[in-house]
Computed example of a mutant assay.
Amino acid sequence: MAVPDAKWEEAMALLQQFERQVIAPVYFNWNFITNQLGISKPTLWRNKAFEREFQRVKDIVRNYKSGAKSFDQLGALAKNHAHGKDEKIRRLKEQVEDLTRQLARERERLIYAALIARRRNIDPAEFMQNTPVIRVSKTKDKVTNIEKSRR
């Protein structure tokens, strides 16, 4: 039987509740977790992401039980905020790489088009001067602002 993604999200949320001390550390055991989720221990243990998160939270909860540590909300918020910025930076770097590849591909296409145009005795510069985009930008430059003409 396959476990739906919503159940895995619920399982991760339950572990986060233990990490943030929303649920008391004394309840951190397999009976409680399997009763809350309705998923067996072997099924949970097959998911490697859940297993890693469980091991990490288990160490944290062990420290909570011994009294050595408690949940630092400000530290967690700062860490989460920094992680969000890091994630945004990573996504933007990927986007820059993708756009750079697209630009290189389009430049190559333009060079090839200019080469073909020259073979057929067409001046590429003349063709570029008559494009609709350039014509539109020239007409925009000729429009005067109403504020300037009133003075």
Rank of each mutant, 00 (worst) to 15 (best):
V143C: 08
Q102S: 05
L77Y: 09
L110S: 07
R52C: 04
E10S: 14
R151V: 14
E108G: 06
D141A: 13
A76L: 02
R119C: 07
M128N: 05
R150E: 15
S149A: 14
L115Y: 08
R105Q: 09
N31H: 04
F50L: 01
V57K: 00
P132I: 02
I39V: 10
I122K: 11
R52V: 11
P132D: 10
R151Q: 15
Q21W: 08
I33K: 01
V96W: 09
R52F: 07
V26A: 03
Q129H: 10
Q129W: 13
E94H: 11
S149N: 15
A117N: 10
K85M: 14
A2N: 10
G75A: 03
S70W: 03
I89Y: 15
P4A: 07
F18K: 09
L99Y: 13
Q102D: 06
R105P: 05
M1N: 08
A117P: 11
T43K: 05
R101E: 12
A82P: 01
K148P: 03
I116Q: 12
P132E: 12
I33H: 02
K85G: 10
R105G: 06
Q102V: 04
G38S: 02
R135H: 12
E51S: 08
N145V: 09
D123A: 11
P4G: 08
M128C: 07
A24S: 13
A113N: 11
W30C: 02
R109S: 07
T144A: 13
K48S: 06
V22W: 06
E126F: 09
Q16D: 15
L110W: 04
L77D: 15
S66N: 02
W30F: 12
Q73F: 05
L37S: 01
E106I: 05
L37M: 01
A125T: 12
N130R: 10
R62H: 05
R109Y: 06
Q36P: 03
S149K: 14
